[in-house]
Structure formats: structure tokens, C-alpha cells
Design a protein around this nucleic acid. Structure first.
Lengths: 63, 63
DNA sequence: CCTCAATGTAAATGACGCTTGACTAAATAT
DNA sequence: ATATTTAGTCAAGCGTCATTTACATTGAGG
């Protein structure tokens, strides 16, 4: 899976730390998801979609 | 997370085994997801949405 | 009644999501 | 020059996701 997290974050001028706090996960988790180390769990994907007010499909897609 | 898998499966008259084969997971995984034992991974959620030609949000939602 | 498909559950195991802590490197500022 | 912020990464550890194998229960049909 790939994702648009880095762009969405840049649009809002948020650091990985900022995003991590809003999602209530560690900064390393945000970094790992952004850099494609692993995919978020489904509940976390929902929280991300909620935060950006988008659907999961608008943020995540297949490689 | 809750989901509408059981209903979607019933609408198509598929057994858990049928669905498992289409998703390429074990029957027990389908059962566990249906009965709320755990949530699917994000890639599996995408495969489920693709199979039913719906968005993830139309199939899964918060408890 | 007996059989068989479908479902639910359980135990053991391996893989993955997420954590904390620590370290490096680049850019910005003081 | 030194300090700070940001991003990337590594390692160890924990809990959850997902697997296989196996057994029990239910309902429909012969």
C-alpha cells in the first residue's frame, strides 16, 4: 500500500510529531507508515481518514 | 470495528468458505472477522471492498 | 435416524503493528 | 559555534492479526 500522508501533512505544515500527536500514535509509527515500512491497522486508517476528513480510499491505495 | 460481511455474504449466498477462497484467506479468518474477534489488516480490507465493489467505509465502521 | 455442509471455537505458531529509547544527519536559528 | 527542530533509522519488546489443525454444534435433506 502507498499513501498520501506526507503530502497531506505538508499541506497543513504539520511535522511527523504533530501528526503523531493528533493520531495518538508514536512519531516512529507515522514515519514508518509514511516511508512504507508497514501499513496502519484498520482502526488507525479510520482515524487518519477522520482527521483529514477524507475516505480511506482517498488516502491509501495499492502499490 | 463492526462490519457487514455476514449480510453481504448472505446476499450472494456464499458460505464462509466461499468468501475465504475469494479473499485467499482461511475460513477461520473470515469467521473471526465476522464475529468481531479481530479486525482485518488494511490490505485485506481493501481486498474485501474490491470483492464487493464497495468502499471500506460502506463495509466497516466503528463500534 | 443418519449424513453432510456450514458455522463456531480452541490451541499453537509466525508475522505484523506499534511502542520506547537511542542515535544520526540536515536545516534553521540563536 | 551551539542549540533546536525535523526526519530517518535501528533494536528490543508486547500485543494483535492471521495462519493451520482439529473438534463440537447446528440445520437441512435423504
Amino acid at each position: 500500500m502507498k499513501n498520501r500522508l506526507k503530502v497531506l501533512r505538508a499541506e497543513r505544515d504539520w511535522s511527523q510529531q504533530d501528526l503523531a500527536e493528533r493520531l495518538e500514535v508514536s512519531r516512529q509509527s507515522v514515519n514508518a507508515i509514511e516511508t512504507g515500512k508497514y501499513d496502519p491497522s484498520l482502526p488507525l486508517a479510520f482515524r487518519i481518514a477522520d482527521l483529514f476528513e477524507m475516505t480511506i480510499e482517498q488516502i491509501f491505495s495499492r502499490d
